[in-house]
Design a protein around this nucleic acid. Sequence first.
DNA 1: AGAATAGTGTCTTTCAGACATTATGTT
DNA 2: AACATAATGTCTGAAAGACACTATTCT
Lengths: 234, 234
Amino acid sequence: MAKQTYDASKYPPFAVTADLVIFTLREGRLCVLLIQRGAPPFEGKWALPGGFTHVDEDIEESAYRELAEEAGVGEGDVVLEQLRTYGAPDRDPRMRVVSVAWLALGADLPEARAGSDAADAKWFAVDEALDLDLAFDHQQILTDGLERARSKLEYSTVATAFVREPFTVGELRAVYEAVWGTTIDPRNFHRKVTTAGNFLVETGERTARGGGRPARLYVKGLTSQLHPAVLRRG
Amino acid sequence: MAKQTYDASKYPPFAVTADLVIFTLREGRLCVLLIQRGAPPFEGKWALPGGFTHVDEDIEESAYRELAEEAGVGEGDVVLEQLRTYGAPDRDPRMRVVSVAWLALGADLPEARAGSDAADAKWFAVDEALDLDLAFDHQQILTDGLERARSKLEYSTVATAFVREPFTVGELRAVYEAVWGTTIDPRNFHRKVTTAGNFLVETGERTARGGGRPARLYVKGLTSQLHPAVLRRG
DNA sequence: AGAATAGTGTCTTTCAGACATTATGTT
DNA sequence: AACATAATGTCTGAAAGACACTATTCT
């Protein structure tokens, strides 16, 4: 077949989708955006937001487009990273679909509103979402996204994606506690994040949100790698 | 469009490929398998092995199939993990192709032989491969695969995928040195890997390959997570 | 004997976890 | 004054890097 004219019809057709695991903090809890399907398959079930990638569109571009369409979230509002691709032959009963899943992390994202194909859209606390019977293989994708987010907090500075600048060390700690589902010693945490290289930059300002002594305010530092890491376990 | 019969033709057709970054050690150097393209596009250029995913095939299954077809490597011979998906609209001049890239790590893999569409197939030392002008976006994929392999050595026990059992601590250290492109203090390395939880299991045997005191032989332990990690940088 | 590699031990520094104490605001 | 949260400090143990030294083979 070498040197022969290329025949695209010989190659099997797939549809490609972008599915989104969008995490944000709402009232101190880690939440994920789910949409209720308004059409078959899985009509009425909750699912991750997402949709078909257009044929002339970069896969990352399609993720940002779905983010805007289904969550009302712009590029500057989140940190987006590719999670993994899911491609079991029977994962969508309609046809052969390969889904590129993305992880999006944002601070205080807007209230959900149902988009085009959705009957409803809602932020769920992640523990509740994991108990739902989600459409397609979205349970697996959500689980993978949660684990990715949890481990990224250890070795990277993405935790700052969950808070608005400027922020306090206490607010940052609340991020770690919500994502990991643990409590953290405030004193050791304070020491670790303020001594880690280029994680936080002091603004010089202070604030008193809530009762106690006013906290220093910080903005994100330059690094995306966290050194030393802030580890979960022992 | 809800409740209406589903029309697959409305969704854009993509081809999906599995591209492979296959690493092994040959003569103490980290090597990657490349094939020389025997047909357009990029005819004559070196590329990562790979091929089209069949429409009835799981994407992971297609990676294993390409591994067998293009490298003569069976499922048991390598550790395979999904790397990332590449989907720029113009990455393949023939048509819209989304490539799911995989990282495969194996011990002492067989000499390469040209497969169906390939003019040639060869193991390249990774530093040489990075200097070639590879087809498609394979330069990027190779770079990403190398970085993934390097960082996985820190936090997981996959280094053992590069050696045959039973192996010595010295052989394992050679893996780290080859993949990281650094030298490591043999004494500190020995202490770290032998005290890390469930990384290595002593067989009780010893061997003397080459001059020097005979080394203890080990097999892989049960863990895939390495604790504490074996870090690259200070 | 000498070379080569394996394996143990020691010292110092860094960092993690536990927890006391002081600082500074609000009610 | 009581309370709450911020920030600093202290102690202990784990682990890293540097490197001396011993062990056991081959040539």
